[in-house]
Design a binder for these strands. Structure first.
Lengths: 194, 194
DNA sequence: AGATATACTTGCCAAATGACAAGAAATATG
DNA sequence: CATATTTCTTGTCATTTGGCAAGTATATCT
């Protein structure tokens, strides 16, 4: 497994010389997570920042009635991170699970902090990481308020069609804030009228 | 209006010499927002970080049916900020409104960035600010999933009783994710059984 | 391929929530 | 202080959504 994709990602995120980018990439460890295995378990502290080179994951928690609720999907060439637990060193309420076999590159909390000290430019990387996480969460929160489930479904379908290739409809349903029964009805109406 | 409260807040957030804290505090401008006026309007870019010295505010947006939905409450001695718009320089989907006459100290985006350059310790302040915002948003998002409205009501009542002194019940209702009708019923059941 | 398990759709019914309206209470205004 | 306005509660009714179960389709395993 070579680190080309990771190197690409770093250079795309941060304007640093190739040499520095290589040094940063070298701090990452190879990570393999088999289908259905966990990258992070609820009740534990997240200790790894992960660049997902290949595969597909989801985060989930449980609602007040004990139903499994998907809170996020992660696709390849993107970051997998439960930022709140990772940065605050608190136990996570969410579990992150591989939905297909996954490979990627992980950076521990300690190594990330060492990079902050040894590579000054990397601090900007940290700041950008936080802002990105915050913006993504905010957008999702707002979309749950100012869009109907049907609209969120269409958005997801248009923008992230690959999710439909990997995730089960009940995972997508709970991500959209409805039951699988309701999603079924949304899909029926959508294929008729939409 | 003196800046003692602000100075206090800064020194509590950041281990810096009094002189440095004073210098930071000097960058803030006095801000007065009268009851019902806006600190931030939806559709504009947030340009101010605000330390609320006195008063009470709320943030709100509209749902798909056009209903006003409260997304946050802000109490005195705390920060008022729409982080996503402020840091990304994008238009805000939320409006932040004073529910009582408010006074505080604001710092513009430019001045904040200048502080990052002129006061190295301040960068840690920025990082901590982002993490706090992220954690708060995450906690709220999760509580909307894994607690019932009744439980969120009790939590809010126990932890933030002053909100009930200032906010209208319909604002609290939408913040909890229910209509004012439902909140009325929750309160009735709560005063009977709880 | 055949058998078994899992996932998806659909209909029916129940429960929860919202919409609306009327009255009571609280607050603001002249 | 009296009136007007706004907010809160509560009842009735309608709508939405979920729960459940049966049937269908799809995927998995040997």
């Amino acid at each position: 497994m070579d680190k080309e994709l990771l190197l690409n990602f770093i250079q795309h995120s941060l304007p640093v010389p190739t040499q520095t980018a290589s040094y940063i990439a070298d701090q990452f460890d190879n990570k393999v997570i088999l289908k259905n295995d966990y990258f992070l378990e609820a009740g534990t502290v997240s200790n790894d920042y992960l660049f997902l080179a290949d595969g597909f994951m989801r985060a989930f928690t449980y609602d007040a009635d004990g139903n499994d609720v998907t809170t996020a999907f992660y696709t390849k060439n993107r970051i997998v991170l439960e930022a709140s637990s990772f940065f605050m060193r608190t136990v996570s309420a969410e579990t992150i699970q591989a939905l297909t076999d996954c490979t990627g590159f992980s950076l521990s909390f300690d190594k990330l902090n060492r990079l902050f000290h040894s590579v000054p430019e990397f601090r900007e990387f940290g700041r950008a990481m936080l802002v990105r996480q915050l913006v993504a969460l905010k957008q999702r929160t707002l979309s749950m308020i100012n869009k109907k489930a049907e609209e969120r479904y269409v958005d997801l379908f248009e923008s992230n069609r690959d999710i439909f290739q990997h995730a089960q409809l009940r995972h997508i349903a709970s991500y959209l804030g409805v039951t699988d029964t309701s999603l079924s009805r949304i899909r029926r109406d959508f294929s008729k009228n939409g």
